[in-house]
Design a protein around this nucleic acid. Structure first.
Length: 497
RNA sequence: GACCGGGUAGCUCAGCUGGCAGAGCAACGGACUUUUAAUCCGUAGGUCGUGGGUUCGAAACCCACCCCGGUCACCA
């Protein structure tokens, strides 16, 4: 009893109804219900007045308008909403009285026939109904007026992320984002399966992390008494698959990077990586264009899409531009000849601080991010990065100071990164050693030396093109969402104390 | 990590220069058989993020802390 007294008066009222239901022998948490139609299907099944169409459907009560001896209720499922009409003279006194024990958010199942109300809304005239689940907490359903304007509802971002189930239950457009996400992932799998790729799963817990420049999460395996890292990329294991003769592989999975959180970054995110033997980075550009333009067209119905108040055109071919050329055009600096001091000065002029501690690799990267990235709105392939910032890519044919690498940028954000994969084990060892030296010098995001990976390359890896694509950022673009958290179902939050 | 903004009823929010903690929706009771932000009458509902301080008096002012958002930093 004290427990109930400590609850809010609203929950207490629902608990009282729960008790009243049990007293009447009604199970408040049902087992199943046979539906003949979803809400949407029921709306479509209506023919005309006088034609009897009987339907059984179920859903959550999202609005209720009692009028004495008749009551209007809307229930919703994933397909949409439908109105129910309960009449005392149809359901009998006892049956109709039961409605008073129902609340917003309860799940019910109904059977009845379709008709149109005076206001022309297709509605089920309920002949039988049953409670399927009693909700003990109310969902904050707002109200929608005639103009479709929302009143009330749920806006607190903290609750929307912490209790995503509430956000989903209340906002159809949030459900749409995750339905779209599932559709995109399905299209990706179809794309690669249709091209002779096989989907593989590589370790998430790794004794040595690599394949990107990032800080890892560290954990411990008790039985092996060993330190393990959560992967920051799939890359090095997928290339081992190529060494082993799998020829074309892809993986869709989570990578983990122990970094800050902002609109574009989240420590646990979804990456697609694929590797194709006997291909180079030019082939990867074609594959990527085909993949992305195909998804955009199938999901959005057009290659030109309006997002974030801009128009993006994914019609092939996309613009292609050289990394060094772009930096020269936007900053006047030639990375081939510029000294570190000049780069530092240019960045300092742009308000960057702490530039004195940055190694050259970081300076190059920042030059691009600061001067070039914001201006690349339309899909752009940026290619041929300086080799020192690309330790896993082959040198460019004809210019060994550059790497056969490209990134796809859309709306000033990196979406994908690809190489002609470095397959010379001695060169790979030298690159790792440079990385190790950088680590010594304090760059704790530089690669560790992965001896097993080098050994794999020594057995011989065919020429291979590889690519990584951030799924979350792709979904953000397609779903028109500004924050990566809006495309992740349950974003980790700091625990409440 | 730094700075800015926020945390008040179940939800959305107001609360001025310190003076009895409010509204709409939701809830509860009543009326109402085609309503749809239903309407009408009535009732109840609060650890004002937490802990200290100033004051006759603090939701408001001061200090510390917690949580969220944004910007920056970090982050290919």
């Amino acid at each position: 009893m004290t427990v109930i007294e400590e609850r809010s008066y609203i929950e207490a009222a629902r608990r009282e109804k729960l008790a009243a239901l049990i007293e009447r022998g009604i199970a408040p948490f049902g087992y199943r219900f046979e539906r003949s139609h979803s809400a949407q299907e029921a709306l479509e099944a209506y023919e005309e007045d006088g034609v009897e169409v009987s339907v059984s459907t179920a859903g959550r009560i999202v609005s209720m308008r009692p009028h004495g001896k008749a009551t209007f209720v809307h229930i919703g499922d994933r397909s949409g909403k439908i109105q129910l009409y309960f009449r005392r003279d149809v359901l009998g006194d006892d049956g109709y009285e039961l409605l008073k024990l129902f609340d917003l958010s309860d799940f019910i199942g109904v059977r009845g026939s379709l008709f149109r109300t005076r206001t022309q809304e297709v509605t089920i005239k309920v002949e039988e109904f049953q409670l399927l689940t009693k909700a003990l907490r109310p969902l904050p359903f707002g109200k929608e007026d005639a103009e479709g304007e929302q009143h009330g509802g749920l806006t607190d971002p903290e609750m929307r992320y912490r209790q995503r189930y509430v956000d989903l239950a209340v906002h159809a457009d949030v459900r749409e984002v995750f339905i779209l996400r599932a559709q995109v992932v399905r299209l990706i799998r179809q794309f690669f399966d249709g091209r002779g790729f096989i989907e593989v799963e590589t370790p998430i817990l790794q004794p040595i992390y690599g394949g990107a420049a990032a800080s890892p999460f560290v954990t411990n395996h008790r039985a092996l008494d060993t330190r393990l890292y959560l992967r920051i990329a799939d890359e090095l294991y997928l290339k081992r698959c190529i060494v082993g003769g799998l020829d074309r592989v892809y993986e869709i999975g989570h990578d983990f990077r122990n970094e800050g959180i902002d609109r574009l970054h989240f420590p646990e995110f979804t990456m697609l990586e694929f590797y194709q033997a006997y291909a180079d980075y030019n082939d990867m550009m074609d594959v990527l264009e085909e993949l992305i333009s195909g998804i955009v067209e199938q999901v959005c119905g057009s290659l030109r899409i309006e997002r974030f108040g801009k128009t993006f055109d994914f019609t092939r071919p996309w613009r292609r531009a050289g990394f060094v050329d772009l930096v020269r055009q936007h900053s006047g600096v030639d990375l081939a000849t510029a000294e570190d001091g000049e780069l530092r000065q240019r960045l300092r002029d742009r308000g960057e601080e702490a530039v004195d501690e940055w190694p050259r690799t970081k300076l190059i990267d920042e030059m691009f991010k600061t001067f070039v990235e914001p201006s690349l709105v339309q899909p752009t392939i940026v290619q041929d990065h300086p080799i020192e910032i690309s330790p896993l890519a082959k040198p460019k044919r004809g210019n060994p100071r550059l790497a056969e690498r490209f990134e796809l940028l859309v709306n000033g954000h990196e979406l994908a990164n690809a190489f002609s994969e470095l397959n010379d084990p001695d060169d790979q060892r030298r690159r790792f050693e440079e990385q190790a030296a950088a680590r010594e010098a304090g760059d704790d995001e530089a690669h560790q030396i992965d001896e097993d990976f080098i050994r794999a390359l020594e057995y011989g890896m065919p020429p291979t093109g590889g690519l990584g694509l951030g799924i979350d950022r792709l979904i953000m673009l397609l779903a028109n969402r500004k924050s990566i958290r809006d495309v992740i179902l349950f974003p980790t939050m700091r625990p409440k104390t």
